[in-house]
Design a protein around this nucleic acid. Sequence first.
DNA 1: CGCCAGGTTGACACTTTTCAAGCCGCGTGG
DNA 2: CCACGCGGCTTGAAAAGTGTCAACCTGGCG
Lengths: 250, 250
Amino acid sequence: MTSEPQRQPAVPLDLGALKTACSNCNLREICLPAGLSHDEVDRLDELVYVRKKLRRAEALFRAGEKFDAIYAVRSGFFKTRVTTPDGRDQVTGFSMAGEILGMDGISHDKHNCDAIALEDSEICTIPYSHLERISLEVPSLQRHFHKVMSREIVRENSVMMLLGVMRAEERLAAFLLNLSQRLNARGYSPVEFNLRMTREEIGSYLGMKLETVSRLFSKFHADGLIEVDQKYIGLRNIEGLREIYAHHTK
Amino acid sequence: MTSEPQRQPAVPLDLGALKTACSNCNLREICLPAGLSHDEVDRLDELVYVRKKLRRAEALFRAGEKFDAIYAVRSGFFKTRVTTPDGRDQVTGFSMAGEILGMDGISHDKHNCDAIALEDSEICTIPYSHLERISLEVPSLQRHFHKVMSREIVRENSVMMLLGVMRAEERLAAFLLNLSQRLNARGYSPVEFNLRMTREEIGSYLGMKLETVSRLFSKFHADGLIEVDQKYIGLRNIEGLREIYAHHTK
DNA sequence: CGCCAGGTTGACACTTTTCAAGCCGCGTGG
DNA sequence: CCACGCGGCTTGAAAAGTGTCAACCTGGCG
């Protein structure tokens, strides 16, 4: 999801695992340390373990595996998905740099979904037992972690809204606008990007078939709203997308 | 949702607000105190404030209101819903005794949804600032609160699955089975109950129109799976419902 | 007693899926 | 270096599922 970086992340690309340091990380403001003081971030540094690299298509964790850590995406792109007993699956979200994965595992000490890298990625591992312990000593960390979980609940509310009341067109417009806004928050262009997921994955997330996604991309293009070329997306008329999202078109 | 109680809750029905005591509450095992020791529950008692009564159709909180407490349903039944700018709304869940409401508000210090009583209800108010403070002193309370939030994330994952991949029939079967299982856990009959919500509210939750809900109830009845009479539901063939849910019927 | 919200049912319309065919672009191996 | 194969994408035509609109019924409440 990183086609046109306006701000280049200054990440050392050493081989092997690195000790991470939240205090040096340029994602500090949007990741778990957001809102912590300098000293508090130092405490957080104690518990954020090695950075791990995953290659495209590798799983960070899978449903059923024992839960013992949450993860922060340092770079790259993930999807999370749940699967029915009979093999159909639902993509429940896409995660990019600074976002936290794995909180669904706390409830039953087992992960409830799969998290799959959609491109080569790096993640920071935050052992849950350490997080619990340090949260007891650093109230603002406890508070911020609650906010992160709560934000996930709110995000899922929005997805339920998408899936429950919106028409296919509106869902796809909402999806593009959401992506645009999150990329923008990370210093990338909000109007040009390369999708990291397939039409099928978008469709699974939005509760529609890949053919419908494809047709709607074509329609949005025909209407002058977007430029599409395979994974490349250029937003040409954001206001128009907002109108679709807001249901002004019937 | 309480038509055929097998075990009658021994709740004093005094007028006005009562000081609640988790230690005496028969919901202790499924509510916030679950898993806490006797002494720990005493600490929790310090912060669970008065019981509040709401009449049918009253709001416990509304989207946009300042967040300062979470709530435990002591008796009664709630729906939560989010609303689009253009006025369509999505029921995001139904809550019964022992379940926790309001955690969506932590993220932005504002409630993100409305919580509406579907029958006369009683709720326990747990001021969030107190919960935060006592969590720092009672690690198992912190842990359990994390589990409660995580469980909400997992629940929402299941709803996304419902809405995203299932057909109307499967969704309604899943809904009935889920209700049955939760009522059973509270000591009520898992095979006979009275719905507290309208067809429209069920439809909103399941992403379909009320007419579709009505038709499916009729179809389930014609297939010998359930008995329906207005709000009354009798499950006649749970295995059959499970097969529909598991997509064995196409 | 009458009203009205809530529920059921039918006929028809529309959105989205299904099935099918074909294209494109990229990586692999000859 | 080129050919091939294949995953991913696009597009069309027909089918299916669900929504829309409308009429009518029912039971509870004021």
